[in-house]
């Protein structure tokens, strides 16, 4: 999988998402999820970590999934606590959970497994604005630095026996923490800009513009991917 060019992977991930959202049949969605699992296998994603990420995402939609069978009118399915659940609602829930997980898993396998700076650069190669690419590259570079700053501030709070609770004192302290972090990050930004100007920064970096041709591996991957896409399209509408 790592032999495939970042922009090809990014593009395939987008196509996969569009394909998945266009399908509504449960058997097709299940095979899309299976295909995404296969991609994850090829990308050698860590099993436990990936399952954890997907479960956290499923947690966000839990409320939706649970209420859906009861709020959709339709054929009787079962009765829980005096409320009638419909088969259509249950089907819709299943459709959402399959779609969401298939798309996220394919994204984790195709895109998130790459080096973040490669993702940023390939966005540029696919026609994203140079500014977005620079923003992403800067953010990725400085997130670790700012995290250390952030942890220093939090350690200082802990050293003064701060314990988060549900009260105004906690909120005020977190407000000051936020304000201080933002101020320090802006100060650092000014120093970074000064250092860049010192080296003749002119609005662009040479590294965001490297573009190499596609290899045979890229071609084979795209061929395999489009064959799969066509199969799904024919299956859904053929």
């Amino acid at each position: 999988m790592s032999a495939v060019a970042p922009r090809v992977r990014l593009l395939c991930s987008l196509i996969f998402a569009l394909l998945t959202i266009a399908c509504s049949r449960l058997d097709i969605l299940t095979s899309l999820l299976f295909f995404a699992t296969m991609l994850a296998w090829f990308a050698r994603l860590p099993v436990i970590g990936t399952i954890k990420k997907l479960l956290v995402m499923d947690g966000f939609i839990m409320i939706l999934l649970v209420t859906l069978p009861f709020s959709t009118p339709g054929t009787h399915w079962f009765i829980f606590a005096g409320m009638e659940a419909s088969q259509e609602g249950g089907r819709h829930s299943a459709q959402i959970i399959l779609t969401a997980n298939a798309i996220m898993l394919s994204f984790l396998a195709l895109v998130a497994s790459m080096n973040p700076s490669d993702i940023a650069r390939s966005l540029g190669e696919l026609g994203c604005s140079e500014k977005i690419v620079q923003l992403l590259l800067f953010t990725i570079r400085y997130i670790e630095t700012l995290k250390r700053e952030f942890q220093r501030l939090r350690r200082a709070m802990k050293a003064r026996a701060f314990r988060p609770q549900s009260n105004l004192h906690t909120w005020r302290s977190y407000g000051y923490l936020t304000g201080m972090l933002l101020i320090r990050s802006l100060d650092r930004a000014d120093r970074v800009l000064a250092a860049m100007k010192c080296r003749g920064f002119h609005g662009s970096f040479p590294a965001t513009k490297t573009e190499t041709g596609l290899t045979i591996a890229d071609g084979l991957f795209m061929l395999w991917f489009s064959l799969f896409g066509l199969t799904i399209l024919v299956w859904q509408w053929g």
Partner: peptide, 11 residues
Amino acid sequence: QIPRVAMLSAA
């Protein structure tokens, strides 16, 4: 302004 905006994104 890119560094400032990026730094705010990170923060």
